[in-house]
């Protein structure tokens, strides 16, 4: 516009020199500095990629480590010092598969009818030994439990 209209301000007619300068030999080392910076940048990218993965997993790893510590601190004392486990340690271990098999094997051999007759056979015999007269005499006597006990003892 200014050129076309020929109304250029006065300052435009002054010589246009560059007032800025650079440190001595500044341009001589640019290539090396830039290539060094590019290399550094590439390394930083690789490190930050690994770092990012670690940063992402950090909370999970922290949580897992906490659980592991809690487990070690709580589980073993409970396991070895609780009364239940102390009783367990003083009794025979029957939880082994061989022992369990043996038990189940023996139980399976017992017939149900023979089991019932075995349980009630003794009872029947005991009752049959008591004579009706003795039973009536026992029931007719008005004795206290203590008197009955002392009589039996004598």
């Amino acid at each position: 516009m200014y050129e076309e209209n020929n109304i250029e301000p006065e300052f435009m007619k002054r010589p246009r020199s560059n007032p800025f300068r650079t440190p001595d030999h500044y341009f001589d080392t640019i290539e090396d500095r830039i290539m060094g910076a590019i290399e550094h940048e590439a390394k930083k990218k690789t490190t930050s990629a690994t770092g990012k993965i670690f940063q992402l997993l950090k909370p999970v790893l922290g949580l897992a480590a906490s659980f592991a510590v809690i487990y070690l601190l709580a589980y073993y004392p409970i396991k070895y010092f609780s009364p239940k486990s102390m009783v367990k340690s003083e009794t025979t271990n029957i939880s082994s598969p061989e022992t369990l098999d043996a038990y189940t094997f023996n139980v399976s051999l017992i017939d149900e009818n023979s089991l019932v007759s075995t349980i009630f056979s003794d009872e029947t015999d005991t009752l049959s030994e008591i004579k009706p007269d003795e039973l009536l005499a026992f029931l007719s006597t008005e004795m206290t439990d203590l008197e009955i006990y002392t009589e039996i003892q004598n």
């Binding site: 650079t22 341009f27 640019i30």
Partner: peptide, 22 residues
């Protein structure tokens, strides 16, 4: 490196005039 050496000065002066400080 060749590319940098070809254009570094022109790019520097363009930038320098914009930001003014070396």
């Amino acid at each position: 490196r060749h590319l940098i050496s070809k254009y570094k000065e022109r790019l520097y002066w363009h930038i320098r005039k914009m930001v003014m400080n070396h």
